[in-house]
Simulated scan of single mutants.
Amino acid sequence: MTGGCPRSGTDEMAYPVEVDYDYDRVPAGLFAAGGPAAGRGLDRWAPLLPPLVAPGLGEGGTPLVELEPGLFVKDESRNPTWSHKDRLNRCTLSAAVGIGAPGVVVASSGNHGASAAAFAARAGLRCVVLASADAPPAVLSFLQAYGAVVLPVPPGGRWPLMRRIVERVGLHPVSNLTVTHTGHGFGPEGYKTVAYEIFTEIGVPAAVFVPTGYGELLFGIGKGFAELRRLGLADRVPRLYACEPAAGGPLAAAVRTGRPAAQVDVGPTEAYGIDCSVGGYRGVVALRESGGRALLVTDEQLRDAQGELARCGLWAELSSAAGLAGLRGMGDLRRAEGLDGPVVCVSTSSGFKDRSVGSHRIEPLAPEWAAVSRELRRAGIDG
């Protein structure tokens, strides 16, 4: 599931496995208002997903928040471990349960590892996470709480070690094993449900702006809308915009040079969640088939977007603000590219996941009106 296609792959390029369905057997009314009585979240969409044999945690069903007329934020921080990765891991852990694996192994210093550990614990499986020593405090707390085995190793050594663990211990890999990103075949299937939920609320938007690392979420959202078109429920797929850190941007490099995937050097950036040096073919496919393109955003643009979300009551991880940062960075191009309808920016994770969380300190204040009044005036609050 994570090794790519053995017939088309080479030492430099790996092509991912994709899941297909008998769409003629999709139940009528699956996307009707209220949906079937079978379940909520991912369970509602079971006819269009791999077998969900792993128990769920209430993942999916996240809110679509309207920031201003026609601009919506899909807030994935409302998932059980506060990120979009819960949609992926409900499906990948189901694969592990389905084949009788004793556990899973994942290379991640962020949301993927925290989520995999949660779903492994729920399924009664062991979880090994190859992480960085400087993983965010919230992520390390998640991993400790769920009883994951955390192995802090340098990024360059993670994939070879994953292969050894898979071969010698029999754990099921739920993250990548290839030089260009393929990921787990079931992963984007979970991400499709983001598109389903957007569609049931506002129909097909003009565009979806997606924080992008390896491009799995981008591809999953595109596939979800493509399935809606295939089922005769939608007449088009929205334009997809991949929003990558300007310090790297392998998907933008692949599109720019006409390659199926690219590898780039990554400069300094605080957007650790999407600072990937390699991309994958799925991201290229998503942009090509939707008529979208790759956007590069600076850390300054990310901080501005994160601040804008916070002023609207949404605390997003810096990487998660890339969707809004990409939209704001377009400026007048938004209208020039025909984005006159509603647009959706996906926010993938909670601000609790940033590395700076826990580093802020405040000095105690004397409980006297003079001191309190002074601080209120400093904040622009007069009374």
Score class of each variant (00 low, 15 high):
S115Q: 03
G113C: 04
V105Y: 09
G267H: 04
L88C: 06
C345G: 02
F219T: 03
Y146A: 05
G124N: 07
P36A: 11
G203T: 14
E289D: 15
P137A: 15
L231M: 12
G232Q: 12
E18K: 02
M1K: 12
G110A: 03
H112Y: 08
P342R: 06
L327K: 11
V169N: 00
L324R: 05
Q301R: 10
A305V: 01
P205T: 05
L302D: 08
H181E: 14
A310S: 13
E270Y: 06
D86G: 01
R303K: 12
T180H: 07
T178R: 13
E12G: 11
A271P: 01
E66S: 07
A116F: 04
P205L: 11
V129C: 07
G329M: 01
P250R: 01
W369H: 09
G39K: 11
F209A: 12
F199E: 09
W369E: 12
Y191I: 10
P102Q: 02
A206G: 15
A207G: 07
N111Y: 00
P250E: 04
Q301D: 06
R236L: 13
V17H: 14
V166C: 09
V237E: 12
S83M: 01
P250W: 02
A336G: 10
G248T: 02
L324A: 10
H181V: 12
G323N: 04
V128I: 14
L302A: 05
L57F: 01
L365A: 11
A46R: 14
G323Q: 07
Y241W: 11
A95Y: 12
A294T: 06
G35K: 08
R334D: 03
V105S: 02
D24R: 11
T178P: 00
V278H: 04
V343T: 09
V73S: 03
A316E: 15
P367T: 13
A254Q: 05
G220T: 14
L130Q: 09
L365Q: 03
V106H: 08
A135W: 04
L130G: 00
G213Q: 07
P250C: 03
V297C: 11
Y23C: 06
A371W: 03
G147E: 07
V19R: 06
A247M: 07
T348I: 00
E289Y: 06
K353A: 07
G185P: 02
R288G: 10
F72Y: 15
R230Y: 14
W159T: 15
N176S: 06
F119W: 15
Y241C: 06
S108T: 14
C345Q: 08
R374T: 14
E300A: 15
G326L: 03
L365F: 00
E76L: 14
P342V: 00
L376F: 12
E66V: 08
M162N: 01
A305S: 13
L324C: 07
I202R: 00
S141I: 03
L217G: 15
G34E: 01
V264K: 03
I202T: 08
A95F: 07
R40C: 00
A261Q: 04
P50W: 08
L287Q: 13
A271D: 06
V97G: 02
R7H: 15
F352I: 12
